[in-house]
Amino acid sequence: MNPMNYVYLSSFLFAIGAAGVLLRRNAIVVFMCVELMLNACNLAFVTFARMQGNLDGQVIAFFVMVVAAAEVVVGLSIIVVIFRTRRSASVDGANLLKY
């Protein structure tokens, strides 16, 4: 099977994730889309590792997973706190930090 298909899939997933981050208002969904982008990158890393015939990409994919897990912990707790105080998880609602 042509490994380039995985690259195309990865780009497609990344595009979906990016569009979700830019367009959706619900913080949870935005968060999920960030995860989607990270995983799209992981897929690309692994594919390239396969294509190059070495393990560098796969190692980096593990690092990304670890970082993503940590990010989930921090990000979700922030979202929970915001939800508790504002009774909403809309990303447009929390816009106090501005000029």
């Binding site: 990016a18 981050v21 830019l22 367009l23 208002r25 935005v30 990303v91 447009d92 929390a94 816009n95 106090l96 930090l97 501005k98 000029y99």
Partner: peptide
């Protein structure tokens, strides 16, 4: 220029993107 800081996360995300 300060007006660029709207406070909307999504617009920041757009500029990063």
């Amino acid at each position: 220029f300060r007006r660029l800081q709207t406070g909307f996360v999504r617009s920041y995300a757009l500029s990063m993107f």
